[in-house]
């Protein structure tokens, strides 16, 4: 497992696209170190690998196909109503390609 360091945590936060303060990283380091120790304790359970990873409470089967009926789409005004930066009916962003 990757060693937990403040730099590793900073890199993770950067990939998640937010910043944290130095004090917050220290608190996070302690919390994550405690958590990994608890997970290590769980790994001591001998029959753990006998279980399949559980991704949902029980198997879900959704096999229906809805009728292929055209429905009214979201109106442009509605789609743009919550965007903070718009221009000429589109969401406006800083230039992506130079």
């Amino acid at each position: 497992m990757k060693e937990i360091t403040i730099d590793v945590l900073k890199d993770a936060a950067s990939r998640l696209m937010f910043e944290m303060t130095e004090e917050e990283y220290v608190k996070l380091f302690q919390e994550l170190s405690s958590l990994t120790a608890q997970m290590e304790a769980i790994s001591q359970c001998e029959d753990l690998d006998g279980y399949e990873p559980m991704t949902f409470p029980y198997p879900v089967q959704t096999t229906y196909l809805r009728e292929d009926e055209p429905l009214p789409p979201l109106k442009r005004e509605e789609a743009l109503s919550n965007a903070g930066s718009t221009l000429e009916g589109q969401i406006k962003l800083p230039k992506v390609v130079g």
Partner: peptide, 22 residues
């Protein structure tokens, strides 16, 4: 960050998959 750390390729087996097995 905890969730992201648990999902890193190096950590998935020991954290995320282990939690799902547990």
């Amino acid at each position: 960050v905890i969730g992201s750390f648990a999902l890193m390729a190096e950590n998935q087996e020991k954290l995320f998959l282990r939690a799902q097995k547990n």
